[in-house]
Design a binder for these strands. Sequence first.
DNA 1: TTATATTTTTAAGTGAGCTTAAATAATAAA
DNA 2: TTTATTATTTAAGCTCACTTAAAAATATAA
Lengths: 219, 219
Amino acid sequence: MKNISKEDYLSAIYKLRDDAGEIKPNLIAENLEISPAAVTDMLKKLSADGLVQYRKYKGIKLTAKGERYAVNMIRKHRLWETFLYEVLKMPWEKIHDEAEKLEHSSSDNLVDKLEEFLNYPKFDPHGYPIPDKNGLIPKHKPVIALSEMNKNDKGVIARISDFKSELLVYASKKGISIGQKITVKDKLEFDGSVTIKVGMNEVSLSRKIASNIFIMMEE
Amino acid sequence: MKNISKEDYLSAIYKLRDDAGEIKPNLIAENLEISPAAVTDMLKKLSADGLVQYRKYKGIKLTAKGERYAVNMIRKHRLWETFLYEVLKMPWEKIHDEAEKLEHSSSDNLVDKLEEFLNYPKFDPHGYPIPDKNGLIPKHKPVIALSEMNKNDKGVIARISDFKSELLVYASKKGISIGQKITVKDKLEFDGSVTIKVGMNEVSLSRKIASNIFIMMEE
DNA sequence: TTATATTTTTAAGTGAGCTTAAATAATAAA
DNA sequence: TTTATTATTTAAGCTCACTTAAAAATATAA
């Protein structure tokens, strides 16, 4: 039996909520791989703690306090990922799961020291921004999903979704990594797949994969 | 084994057992600050897992398997302590508690990488030996508790018990740290307290404190 | 609008690891 | 050796984060 903590719920809500900041219980349940009933249960507790705004059958929102907690967890997660990748040289696809555990086992103070040691990185190894001590999240130029780009568009890989390690292994193998320049060589309306030039080679990616790779476009 | 409690029991048994390798349930209960009944409960489970040898009302022993697990946890703990102290520059008295949490949240692989990054340290910041990947524990010259030393004995501080952070803060304040040379200036039969010269100053320590400081004696 | 499907909540129950209280075994003192 | 003390185990019960199944609310389709 998995023991998913309040911290995980908050992070999940933060990451999965829509543009209006709302989320349905079902989505949380799917993401954390638990029953919807467990989510209802926990939402009541989080609500009692003043961490989420919860009304039966309505969309859920984080309170300001809940959001602070969530951002703090994400900060910890991304700093640990950076440490594991940059310092311990762990492979790209393993750092997410390790960081997932470490983020729950380190005090704010420890993580502040870690940030200092890493020299205040702004982005993690997958290209996600690292919130600072005050919850401020660095912005870089807007990014667009590779799946949304058109033939002949150019840009630089800025971010790759990190929640499926399979995706990261695959991307690595194809020579796809943060900071690489790419050009869209072809795009099939038929299945949404794109062919890009990255480094010396051309690679074809399914729509699903392309939608998890984010590009900083070139003007 | 992803179970925090079981890991804690094994470490506790390893650390608290007597010279014959045995331990009474009561001692575990006191150390983990739980009821003796909870210990009985868990011992049955550990026994079922083949980690301890348990017979009602008899002394408890770790099995070979249990000992491997315990040593591995201690390895993780001491490597994390070393990292927190040497790399993140966390204060001496805080690293024990932080390492206590991290040790349960890091894979063997991660810890191996950490060890490599730290350049294979042999002792942690409190002077305890760090088991290697194979469970081999470095030995340094034998040490003796400061409380067992006699007037005019000399030596070097090799180890300070780390399970009461209060003790570490106190020691720090008195200028006591690993590697320092000391001389026993006086010892009172009355209460077992000792006065030592360390660096420039003389400090008096109760028997209890002296029994938690270990010295590599000078011949 | 009504019927149907989907989502969410409630209700009842589980296992892990703890608690207190009572019973039993081992140890120490008279 | 008997008695008193201390240590350990058993028994019953609690909380937490889950589960499944059923009920209720909401959303979608005919």
